[in-house]
Design a protein around this nucleic acid. Structure first.
Lengths: 244, 244
DNA sequence: ACAAAAGTGTTGGCAATACACCCATGG
DNA sequence: CCATGGGTGTATTGCCAACACTTTTGT
């Protein structure tokens, strides 16, 4: 891009701005940059996402994904991680940028451009502690009824879910939602939960095997009935399978 | 997201900022938002993109995609269109957001978060006139040797090309690069140019026909040899073909 | 022995690939 | 009639979806 016009002098006046504004700060006014993160977890075979309830402002009482403004000098990913940590106390295992929402009216108070992220954590046991900055916080099953969302967060929720679904098909993204070792059935249930439909066990095993991302562990999980073989992903970093 | 902390008072101090800054404006400092647009055109069977050469600043002489800062109250798409129009005089037929690049060091002068876009125009005849804000401007064939790029624009270029390639497979995105009517051969050449490889004519016709996005016109194009049937896309808006 | 979950193969249809010849026109 | 690009069909292959029974363990 051209950042030549970073100096405000070179910038054309924007619509209806007074030519000689009273407060100099106003001339420099620019949209702010925020990140909003859709955090997913799978708990008991259900896909859930974390929401916080706003405490003040015109949208008080509405719910939103954890997020906030980006600082000068901060990477976008770092901003997302920082907000997630300060809001939920959780460090995500996976973080991916989704899309940037910039409608000036998405936030009634100011023009805030929001870079949406999706994050995954693998341990549903660590329950997030709501920050004092919010009225409440909690996990909500998705797809399903979410409480009334602030801003354009309903859009962001849809976007995140469809991205997650798509990535199941050709990556090992499930590695970031599952514990280190798991049974084939658990993997299948995870896929079924996210995709919202059940899968044929045999075809599923075949497809997953074809991806070649799993390794079989030499142990089994014993339960009330026939023991199940345990597996883990070969790599804990995102792998993309070529499907030419 | 939480925009609760829009009020600067609620915002935590960022790294190393003096607790009582001399200039109040500094306390309010935030990353700026820009858009950068990769404009593609197909001219003579070659895919080309438009670049401008920076006139001043630490990156003087380097080349960049048209772009600039977003104004308060402006939609991101509108910002991209505005910059494209002011830089090249062109109105794009198609515009799509790609990704947002936010590395604070991507611009040596300031922290500028850039929302990258891809744009398509159909008429290679309209030659862009370089704006006076730039030392030069011109079309460069891609994939191919581009001049030295400023910022992280090499990344953006790669990203745009791969997105364009991917969309050929399951959308009528070619509609925005071709004139209203065209021959099958022209369409095939377009695909070949963008994908960087040649295609089997018969299989290509079959696949395109299967997408069902074309209609055959009752006229032919006469040339020095056998006339070719003319086609057009049924819809001039983006259509996505389901491939279950 | 029985209940419960784990594990395993085969078949048919569809879609993608590879491949070569005839056609229509202008010169 | 010839040169040039336009237009067409078939055979094979690999992939994906549908489908049901046997095995292993705990109780």
């Amino acid at each position: 891009m051209d950042h030549t016009n970073i100096a405000p002098e070179q910038r054309p006046q924007h619509n209806g701005a007074p030519p000689a504004p009273a407060r100099r700060a106003h001339r420099y006014e620019r949209p702010k940059v925020a990140v909003d993160t859709v955090l997913f977890v799978v708990d008991g075979g259900r896909l859930k996402t974390y929401l916080v309830q706003l405490k003040s402002g015109p949208l008080r009482g509405k719910w939103a994904f954890p997020g906030g403004l980006v600082r000068v000098g901060e990477m976008l990913d770092d901003a997302a991680r920082r907000q997630l940590l300060s809001t939920t106390g959780l460090e995500c295992a996976y973080l991916e940028q989704l899309f940037t929402f910039g409608d000036p009216s998405r936030d009634p108070r100011a023009h805030v451009v929001s870079v949406a992220y999706m994050a995954l954590i693998s341990d549903p046991a660590r329950v997030a502690v709501p920050s004092h900055k919010y009225a409440a916080g909690g996990w909500y099953e998705v797809p399903g009824q979410l409480p009334p969302l602030a801003y354009d967060h309903a859009l962001i929720a849809d976007y995140a879910l469809s991205r997650l679904k798509a990535k199941l098909a050709y990556t090992n993204i499930a590695a970031f939602v599952l514990p280190k070792s798991f049974t084939f059935k658990e993997l299948e249930d995870l896929y079924a939960a996210i995709l919202g439909r059940s899968l044929d066990r045999r075809n599923f095993r075949r497809r997953i095997a074809a991806m070649g991302l799993l390794k079989k562990l030499p142990v089994k999980r014993y339960g009330p009935h026939r023991p199940a073989g345990l597996y883990s992903f070969r790599k804990q970093t995102l792998q993309v399978v070529q499907m030419l």
